[in-house]
């Protein structure tokens, strides 16, 4: 049975690649090798905006660029860079370092960046980091905060349920226990700072959620960010991660200029324009690029 299935799949693959070679499917991996730069993004608004900004900056240098948006979590994105489906992705220094070096304990911005540069696998590289930062942050409702929860340390042991993306537990469950002695009654899988996460906090399914500091939802819902005095969450400066051979020197220079122009404030504003004002990612990115001299 398995053999028959293999035959079906293989012959299908043959036929499809035969007809597929003539077709042009925007952003398909096959074109990546022939000089086109594919910019990828993870599945949340800010990352999509950054990808669109990178794409615009690269286009301005004369490169052929396409965007593959909303791919998933870091693991998938890095894999896609390595197998040449993608050329460049917007990344975050701290989490990227933790991904490349599971034993990392560095959290301060410069140290993280230095360590990241040395830990990035061969074939990939990170460019200059931006001052703009988008950190993970645990937030609670105003009511919970008024009840005396101001810092991660106040969460105590087994008192609250947490809502976060699927990979949170794997990355942080042990660290939050070691640093603060905090455990949760339940770590509910929601999404990466999206509607499921926010609604879970609003309707009381969980009492703490993991969001990102540039998220428009924090202000819109009056959520309170918990302090992180022992810096569990590392610095998360925005940084382009790329496959070295995918982008030329001019392109790298353009991306460095973008990073220099980005600040946490203007990034948060771009996110708000998309998530709250429903402007398009493309327009918001284009507006931003007008303010950068490439």
């Amino acid at each position: 049975m398995k053999r028959t299935l293999a035959v079906i799949v293989a012959s299908a693959a043959l036929v499809v690649s035969a007809c597929g070679s003539k077709e042009d499917l925007g952003g398909s991996g096959q074109q990546a090798a022939s000089g086109e730069v594919v910019v990828g993004s993870a599945d949340f608004t800010e990352n999509k905006i950054l990808a669109e900004i990178y794409a615009g900056a690269l286009k301005a240098t004369g490169a052929t660029v396409s965007v593959r948006s909303g791919i998933g979590a870091r693991e998938l994105v890095v894999k896609a860079l390595q197998d040449k489906s993608l050329g460049v992705v917007p990344e975050y220094t701290g989490n990227l370092l933790n991904y490349f070096d599971k034993t990392n304990t560095t959290t301060e911005a410069e140290e993280v960046y230095t360590a990241l540069k040395s830990k990035t696998p061969a074939g990939l590289e990170v460019l200059e980091k931006s001052d703009a930062e988008d950190k993970d942050v645990l937030v609670v409702t105003k009511a919970t905060a008024d009840g005396g929860v101001k810092s991660i340390a106040d969460l105590g042991s087994g008192k609250y349920a947490l809502g976060a993306a699927g990979e949170w537990a794997q990355r942080w469950e042990t660290k939050v226990k070691d640093l603060y002695g905090v455990t949760f009654t339940e770590i509910k899988t929601t999404d990466a700072g999206g509607p499921i996460t926010v609604d879970a906090l609003k309707n009381g399914t969980v009492q703490v959620i993991n969001l990102y500091t540039t998220s428009a939802d924090i202000k819109a819902n009056g959520f309170v960010e918990l302090e992180d005095p022992k810096t569990m969450y590392p610095a998360q400066n925005i940084v382009p991660l790329l496959r070295s051979d995918a982008v030329d020197a001019k392109g790298k220079e353009a991306l460095d200029k973008v990073s220099a122009a980005l600040t946490t404030e203007n990034l948060a504003d771009l996110v708000k324009r998309v998530d709250v004002d429903k402007e398009t990612v493309a327009n918001v990115a284009a507006d931003f690029l007008k303010t950068v001299t490439l």
């Binding site: 799949v9 299908a12 398909s28």
Partner: peptide, 25 residues
Amino acid sequence: IIPALIGTQVLDPLNVIIALTVYTT
């Protein structure tokens, strides 16, 4: 799962195409 089985790129449209071909067949 198709990339893991036949070694296509993880974002290759072929993955969706092959999967749908299997269903339709």
